[in-house]
Design a protein around this nucleic acid. Structure first.
Length: 494
RNA sequence: GUCCCCAUCGUCUAGCCUGGUCCAGGACACCGGCCUUUCACGCCGGCAACACCGGUUCAAAUCCGGUUGGGGACGCCA
């Protein structure tokens, strides 16, 4: 993957110490968070939620939110995923203040820091064969042991070589502990750790090392991430200490589980964040849903963006993982659909209508349509689907409804309604209501008996928005046309 | 297997830090009812939980220990 250098990227020009010092001196008071996805796949709900929490924390404190792309896995990183990540965050309104930075552009910086550890004797070269290591790991696991590197190259004093990786000399006794802002005190016995590879044989640093260097040089003050990173934290803390850098605050948030248990993942029902957009979800709904998964502010369910920023705090994160529940997301989505002003809703709905092949006369028409559907649709996709009859021939009529409401005895009633509509100049709600009221009292028929045949005629279905709204939106000409069509249908049946 | 984290309605959660006001509150879903030209919306009502065992205490959802259960991590992936 190649990318142009970003002018804002600190530490690129060999001024490692300078960059580092500047942040240490001037930026310590400012809150700086980052979101650092790897571009090896689509952004899903889990990762996006991490981004959201980091963004909220930064905004709450008037701090800085950094986007950093962790693309040190050259095999699997792809440019198109970088674009997808950016597009996803923008769609949700999670704008970043610095970056995107790319680890692949910061290689000289990492090399410099590796050298420092090497010089201090806190790291060493290792020429163990990866395939060999893999075998030993599997054996250990099969034996029921914890697979750990045995440190066989630790004291060999190897020099750099074409097949040599660099390992970090992990403390062999004592414990590493920190006060996690999400979980409370956490402690690891250092004997559980091993000498991890910090630079691959190809010269590219590994994740655990690159994050630390980046977080130090970018002045990140709060590392907010999924709890799957807890086991990495003691290793990273040891690296911070070896580098003589101050520790940031760590806050580990819960992961999101799939309905059947297990972390939500591509394999377990997670879909790309942009798929939510395509499925007719509103970004506010998704944001509101994600934040309430693992965070609460009393009993409040609905939050505006401003409220979120105002109330967000690490202290109110829950400690146990939450289960992804599409029903609740749908409820929030229908809520925000109802909240959205009609002209705006029309704008959002338009692409979905076009997707169905419909051509709307104008946005105003779509707004009127949306006004009849907004309490009946959980997604924009549903809404577009329910709007079909506003744009196309309603036939064929729903079979069951036709049997019941388009029987021969309905013909004279429809004829009568047609006649009266023809004579009407104004299709206002009151006028239409009056028309049907008159008919019920004159004929003794119930409203349903009059309404359903007309509903079938206009929409093709027995379920639809209010009849008067539909008549008014469709307009006289179209309504009469559809009533004639339904009369044909009834007569032909006999 | 080892290490780490966690444990309130089916689900998201409030309460837990600072024990009594909690025979546990809200929301989604579900079930009734009202409204009504259909379906929704809205409104009203209902069902439903402190995992278990011990300890501390006058008193425990709240503090402590254990058990069980769930999750995560054990890569020259991130």
């Amino acid at each position: 993957m190649s990318r142009n250098k970003s002018g804002k990227n600190p530490g690129l020009d060999g001024e490692i110490m300078i960059t580092f010092t500047i942040y240490k001196v001037n930026k310590m008071a400012e809150v700086r968070t980052r979101f650092s996805p790897s571009p090896t796949g689509s952004l899903h709900l889990g990762g996006t939620r991490t981004a959201l929490f980091n963004w909220l924390f930064a905004r709450h404190h008037g701090g800085v939110f950094i986007l950093r792309i962790e693309d040190t896995d050259r095999e699997r990183s792809e440019e198109r995923y970088v674009r997808e990540i950016e597009e996803s965050l923008k769609w949700l309104g999670l704008t970043w203040d610095e970056g995107p930075f790319f680890q692949s552009e910061r290689l000289p910086l990492y090399r410099e820091y590796i050298q420092r550890l090497l010089d201090k004797g806190m790291a060493y070269y290792c020429d163990c064969d990866p395939a060999d290591l893999e075998v030993r790991r599997k054996e250990a696991l099969a034996r029921g042991d914890k697979p750990k590197y045995d440190g066989r190259c630790r004291e060999r004093g190897l020099k750099a070589g074409p097949h040599s990786a660099v390992r970090f000399k992990t403390a062999q006794d004592g414990a590493t502990r920190w006060h996690d802002r999400g979980k409370g005190p956490i402690s690891f016995d250092n004997r559980e750790l091993d000498d991890l590879v910090i630079q691959r044989a190809d010269g590219i640093p590994t994740y655990n090392f690159a994050v630390v260097v980046d977080d130090i040089t970018m002045g990140v003050t709060h590392v907010i991430r999924g709890e799957d990173h807890i086991p990495n934290t003691p290793r990273q803390i040891l690296i911070y200490q070896a580098l003589g850098a101050a520790l940031p605050e760590f806050a580990h948030m819960t992961v999101t589980l799939a309905k059947d248990g297990g972390k939500l993942s591509k394999r377990r029902g997670a879909i790309p964040i942009l798929a939510y957009r395509d499925r007719g979800y509103l970004p506010q709904a998704l944001v509101n849903y994600m934040v309430r998964l693992g965070w609460a502010h009393g009993d409040q369910e609905i939050f505006s963006r401003e409220e979120l920023i105002k109330y967000f705090s690490l202290e109110h994160m829950s400690k146990s993982p939450g289960v992804y529940d599409e029903e609740k997301l749908l409820w929030l989505n229908s809520h925000y659909i109802k909240e959205t002003p009609l002209p705006e809703l029309a704008r959002l709905l338009l692409p979905f209508l076009e997707g169905l092949g419909f051509k709307a006369p104008d946005l105003d028409y779509v707004a009127r349509v949306a006004g009849t559907l907004n309490t009946r649709s959980k997604t924009l996709v549903e809404m577009a689907d329910a709007a079909r009859f506003y744009f196309a021939d309603p036939r064929p009529y729903e079979e069951k409804g036709a049997r019941k409401f388009l029987a021969p005895e309905n013909a004279p009633r429809v004829e009568e309604i047609k006649k009266r509509l023809e004579a009407m100049a104004d299709f206002s709600e009151e006028a239409l209501n009056q028309l049907f009221q008159d008919l019920t009292s004159e004929t003794g028929l119930k409203m349903v008996q009059l309404a359903q045949p007309v509903r079938l005629a206009l929409t093709g279905k027995t379920v639809s928005p209010g009849l008067f709204d539909i008549i008014s939106i469709l307009g006289k000409e179209e309504v009469l046309k559809r009533l004639n069509l339904v009369l044909d249908f009834i007569y032909k049946k006999q």
